[in-house]
Write a protein that binds this DNA or RNA. Structure first.
Lengths: 135, 135
DNA sequence: ATCTAGTTTATAATTATTCTAAAGTGAAAA
DNA sequence: TTTTCACTTTAGAATAATTATAAACTAGAT
């Protein structure tokens, strides 16, 4: 991902490109594969990589701004921490509770044949399939 | 649900039937319909109903013992609190984020036609479908 | 009725996350 | 370029959910 795209991601999230935010954005978006993380793991990886110490509050703020702008999605995982995903397309997840690892499933790899009737006056926002794994 | 069944639920969870535990168990399991709750909501409902003040720690301990014994299931919901469900059969959920309300979906009301290949050496423990609703 | 291991409870501790307010900085305007 | 100021970063405090602790209590075996 080019530098200009990183700046676009920031600006489209309503964020001015400060040193810290650029560092976070590059770490998240300059990758081939999708990336799953918690704020805690992101913090550790960032400080390990660059030795810099970005305040946790800054990471929370930046990640939430990206999420609100639709550049990150939040994944529901059994447990206490919130997981994020750089894959914002419509897709599903495997969850391996042995390793606490999330794995993306392409939306096309799951076909739902029958869906239940939706409650009165409501519409479907989205459907998430979660496949829990064991050994 | 008969009193003897409440005692069975407790004993099968490795819990001696104390006054507090019986009160929690009756409140949870003496119902026709399935019941969704958080520890916080359960605590409020219990104190409103009987005026008794069961310590939060006791509610946490008891609910977790029921969960471990398979008498309650935990439902993943976007947010910070943990939801529990008295329906422990294989089933799915609607989630209405407007009202923070969970609604059960019978397992037979969703048919999945195609599932992805499972990662090496892993097996599927279960498949959960989560339908987010909007107005 | 007594005794003991298991329980309850209030409170402290922990963990994830958000808030705060002081010090620092990007970038628009001069 | 330099100034200026609203936006940022940061350390630490505050909050919220949950878990741990340890002293007082109790179910149920003896």
């Amino acid at each position: 991902m080019k530098k200009i795209d990183i700046l676009k991601k920031l600006r489209s999230s309503g964020l001015r490109p400060t040193k810290q935010r650029v560092e976070i954005a590059k770490f998240l978006f300059e990758r081939e594969k999708t990336f799953h993380f918690t704020v805690e793991s992101l913090n550790k990886l960032l400080s390990k990589k660059s030795g810099s110490k970005i305040a946790l509050a800054t990471i929370y703020n930046t990640v939430h701004a990206f999420k609100t702008a639709g550049h990150l999605s939040e994944v529901e995982v059994r447990g206490n921490k919130t997981y994020f995903d750089t894959n914002v397309s419509n897709h599903h997840h495997f969850y391996d509770s042995e390793t606490s690892e999330l794995i993306d499933i392409d939306a096309n790899d799951i076909i739902i044949q029958k869906l239940p009737k939706v409650p009165n006056g409501k519409k479907i926002k989205n459907v998430e399939v979660f496949i829990n794994l064991k050994n």
